[in-house]
Amino acid sequence: MRLLASLTRRLLVAVPILLVVSALLFTALRVLPVDPAAMSMPPNATRAEIEQARIQMGLNKPLPVQYAIWLGRAAHGDFGQSIHLRRDALRLVAETLPATIELTGAAMLVAGILGVAGGLLLFALRDRKAELVAETATTVLMSVPEFIWALLFIFIFGVLLPVLPFTGRLAPSLDRPVVTGFLLLDAVLVGRMDVLMSALAHMVLPALALGLAFSTPVMRVLRASLLDVYHEDYIRQARLRGLSETRILLRHALKNAFLPTLTLLGVQFGFLFGGSLLIEVIYSYPGMGNLMVDAVRNADLPVIQLVGLTYCVVVLFINSVVDGLYQVLNPRLRAR
């Protein structure tokens, strides 16, 4: 209940930000040297025809009026048509967003598991010589951006030892069940084990590449906050009470050290969600990132605008959820 209230408050704060973002996006894309009217017409269209289209699309009106028109239509769920694909932009996003969410969720899981495991390992190595090596290793790992991991994994697991698929979301021989758009969920819903296994296999490499790149900051923050927590009195108390080191770490320290890590995971989500774009391009994964890159290549303004906006909505939403969780989990904030 408390979470819900705190979450609602935070989501309300996000609304003005979203309005500003949409206005900025709108302006940025309108001042471009591309003419959406001319682009939506066949190449042999006359000047008069293009002018007609401009008037029809409202492009002859002043920018604020154009934005108001756009906002009014957007409120009714009309985000325009893709110029390149000649399909409803909202529909295109609705078809690709679940794939991106699935990929990002899996990557977040990888980043969380590897990050916590690595952070505990780094902490266990404190004040030993091996710590220097481990620290250097994390610096080096941090220098590998997700798209480099993606390419290396394709080379290692796709070419050298061809054990995992690295294109698409599903083996081409399988037909895709569509219930919710979330492939893993749909496969379970219709009870198709073959589809589930194939979808999971296709997700391993992209999720690993994306998650690995974001696990190193998690490791570092967890280690640093564990070091901080170990200076607190209650750790000494616990030792005096004769608790084992493992119990102190897992039952007392980790719980408190986890809060800064949670905040970091929230901040990282924006980067991770954006990073999925490139991973999708590299693995030909049919998500929103590929839609975006295609739209950008074809200067498909309505799609660019809506996809850009969707990325922002998701990031703002997740940040609100993380903030809300933080508020609920942190006893110091709960009292207020």
Partner: peptide, 13 residues
């Protein structure tokens, strides 16, 4: 609130 990659792609457009 913009993922950096998305914002840079929009700007490059």
């Amino acid at each position: 609130s913009f993922p950096p990659v998305v914002l840079s792609l929009i700007l490059m457009t």
